[in-house]
Each structure stands twice: as structure tokens, then as C-alpha cells.
């Protein structure tokens, strides 16, 4: 049976409901919360601060250090073993590469900006939620950056292209599934993350990029209003 209707009655190009908030962790220099459907990401930014060990320092620009961590109870029933593993290290690296192009790290030579991303609950699309949360937290930390980096997963179930797969769709067994997480810089429309699990045709990939572009522009709007909210709340208190 072809997958023509989504199990949660979403439109084909509709993301799950998004909730975003900034300044959720008091002791961090910047922090953010990003929830898309049942996937929740918390990001905390510390720095720029002094970098140790010293041999890692770069005199030309500051470095970005990302940590991606799923909490033991965050998965689909099975306990996620705590601590770094091959998967989390890879995702931390692609997150770092997705964020670096927008950051003006040359303002902070020899220093480091640490980004810690934690997931208390996941339901597919965690690296995308992590990138969204991290870029909001970096903005909150007052780091100079050219733009925010919204990110979304585009997928294929059977012949149908879908925006923002959840775990049910990603693990759909009756038809073949492909999953393409991507991140984009909205002002230049450049992609900073593009991965694929599964296979698609050339035409389907083009369609995925068009869908992703549209979704990223919408997510950026959500992120922008969420950041502004933090400062408007205070004004209302009057």
C-alpha cells in the first residue's frame, strides 16, 4: 500500500509543531530549547573562553566545540548507553560544520566556544533539532554570526517526498524509506548540512532541496520570534 496519507494527518510539506525558547539555562552564557513534535533539544553555549589544552589553540580564529548527547531514557524504549559513541561523535562533527560558516570566530583568536546539546526525548530528526537549538543559543550568547541556521529532515516514503519524518515514518517497513537531514543559511540559501540515509533519484533530491528551503525559511521565523520573546517578556512585566 502506497503511503499517501500521513499517520498523524499532517500535510506532505508540513513540519511537526515547533516550540522554541531562549535563555532556559541560567548559568550558561547562552541557551535555548527547541521542540519539534516529540523531539526535544536543549543547547547551552559557554564562551568564548580560554582554550586548554594549549596545543589546540588557533592564533587566527577561535574554535567551535560541539557535544551531542542523548540521555539514557530518550530513545524508543531501549536504554541509550550514556557517553560518547561513534554515532554521537559523527553528529557532533556535522553539527560543528553546519554552524561554523555563519560564526565570526576570527573575533576570538586562541579561544573556544563550547556548545553542549542534550536530548531528553527523541523521535527522529534529532540532529536537525540540535542545530536549530544550538544556533539560537549561540545568538543568545552574543556571538557575532551572519545568520541563524535552521535545519530540517526531508524524507521519501515509497515515491512520496515528505517534510520532517518522525520515527514511525523513518522506520516504515512496507515501503523503502530515505531520509535527508539538511541545514541552510537563509540569507544566502547555502546548505551547510546535507546527509542521506537510503537512496533517491536526482529529481527527488531536487524536490527535497526545494521543500527543505521552504521549511528552513519558516523555521527561521519561529526561531527569530522566540529570541525576541525573551526581551519582550521583561517589558510586559511593567
Amino acid at each position: 500500500m502506497a503511503y499517501t496519507k500521513r499517520h498523524d494527518n499532517r500535510k506532505m510539506d508540513e513540519t511537526r509543531p515547533i516550540e522554541a525558547k531562549v535563555g532556559v539555562i541560567k548559568r550558561a552564557h547562552g541557551s535555548a530549547y527547541f521542540k519539534i513534535g516529540d523531539t526535544i533539544a536543549y543547547a547551552a553555549v559557554y564562551g568564548p573562553r580560554e582554550l586548554h589544552p594549549k596545543f589546540m589553540q588557533n592564533p587566527e580564529r577561535g574554535i567551535l566545540r560541539v557535544k551531542y548527547n542523548m540521555l539514557p531514557f530518550s530513545g524508543q524504549g531501549d536504554r541509550v548507553r550514556p557517553g560518547p559513541n561513534r554515532r554521537s561523535k559523527e553528529i557532533a562533527l556535522v553539527t560543528q560544520h553546519a554552524l561554523e560558516p555563519v560564526l565570526n570566530l576570527e573575533d576570538f583568536p586562541n579561544s573556544v566556544v563550547d556548545v553542549l546539546i542534550e536530548f531528553p526525548q527523541t523521535d527522529a530528526g534529532s540532529r536537525c533539532a540540535g542545530i536549530c537549538a544550538a544556533s539560537m543559543a549561540l545568538a543568545d550568547a552574543g556571538i557575532t554570526m551572519k545568520d541563524l541556521v535552521p535545519s530540517i529532515g526531508i524524507g521519501r516514503v515509497g515515491k512520496q517526498m515528505l517534510v520532517d519524518l518522525d520515527y514511525y515514518e523513518e522506520a516504515y517497513e512496507e515501503e523503502s524509506v530515505a531520509d535527508i537531514p539538511l541545514a541552510m543559511i537563509p540569507t544566502t540559501e547555502e546548505f551547510t548540512l546535507l546527509q542521506m540515509d537510503g537512496d533517491v533519484t536526482k529529481e527527488q533530491l531536487k524536490e527535497a532541496l526545494i521543500l527543505g528551503k521552504k521549511a528552513c525559511h519558516n523555521i527561521k521565523k519561529v526561531m527569530t520570534t522566540a529570541i525576541k520573546q525573551k526581551f519582550q517578556e521583561g517589558v510586559k512585566k511593567k
Binding site: V102, A139, T224, I227, K228, Q232
Partner: peptide
């Protein structure tokens, strides 16, 4: 008013 990185 508050402006956010990437805002025109």
C-alpha cells in the same frame, strides 16, 4: 527594538 542575527 531587538534584532536577531540574520534579520534584514
Amino acid at each position: 527594538e531587538v534584532v536577531v542575527p540574520g534579520e534584514v
